[in-house]
Design a binder for these strands. Structure first.
Lengths: 140, 140
DNA sequence: GGGTAATCCTTAAGATGTTATCTGTTGTAT
DNA sequence: ATACAACAGATAACATCTTAAGGATTACCC
């Protein structure tokens, strides 16, 4: 039997840690957590999203997202408004300040991503992407 | 530029979630968290480990491990004793009850692992294992 | 139209992640 | 032997994860 340290779930965890180490220093400089940055990225791409959609895209459960949004709103990075069509829904978007911050920081993170991609080669990264996609389709 | 939803770190997170869904139901039955089970697995393999070694093998930071150990000790699953050679170190091992529990549950989890492995095929799993190993070697 | 189930978001409670700091112990150089 | 750096755990403070349950709004059915 495979040693537990080589089990796929743990390997995935380690690999994630390894890749995140490329970006963590930059995020620390601007005092944003990994999750907060994911939220900002998503809102930068989609302009305005409902809380539920945002949670799904960022892979963050809604109870966590509630707190994250609260903190980002308090920092003046996110705006929330109720949907006029459906009072249950909350619509979220970036403030101008956040958009500016994204433009400033994004290139540096992209550069780190490239550095990482080049270290393992684009082919392997593509292959990895493929395999991870398949893992996500598995049904228990 | 790649959409952030397809970035490698997020893909790794999603894939990990997908694989864990094979095991989560069983762990929930016995009221153990994923991390607690990892600790038990490690101690089952190595009999006795120092806190630091355990943390490294389980990919758990020591402050988290302190809490996990406390809870497992309280549940009568783990024993701790101070190293006679070095009073700073703490040696950890499973209780008989925990060993028994491991023997009982382990086969069921192994079966789920096999089910997962077969769904994507052994070859792809091996390839994935290879690629994840390379990711871990990257240096920022 | 009124009762009811479903939906979205939030809150609650406990466990873990993350960084910084503290305490006690050991190693080392003077 | 003493002072000081290095090390192993533990604690603290805050953020997030995870599951369950609550409050408000909407959809559906009779």
């Amino acid at each position: 039997m495979r040693k537990f340290e080589d089990s796929i779930p743990l390997q995935l965890l380690k690999a994630r840690e390894a890749t995140m180490s490329f970006f963590r220093p930059i995020l620390q400089e601007i005092s944003l957590t990994e999750q907060q940055w994911r939220v900002i990225q998503a809102l930068n791409e989609y302009t305005e999203l409902e809380s539920k959609q945002l949670a799904e895209r960022c892979c963050i459960l809604s109870p966590s997202l509630t707190g994250i949004i609260n903190r980002l709103e308090q920092q003046g990075l996110i705006q929330r408004r109720k949907s006029p069509d459906d009072q249950r829904r909350v619509l979220l978007s970036l403030t101008d300040e956040a958009k500016q911050m994204f433009e400033d920081v994004s290139p540096r993170l992209d550069a780190r991503y490239k550095a990482m991609a080049e270290q393992i080669s684009e082919e392997k990264l593509e292959l990895l992407n493929e395999l991870l996609g398949e893992l996500c389709k598995l049904k228990p």
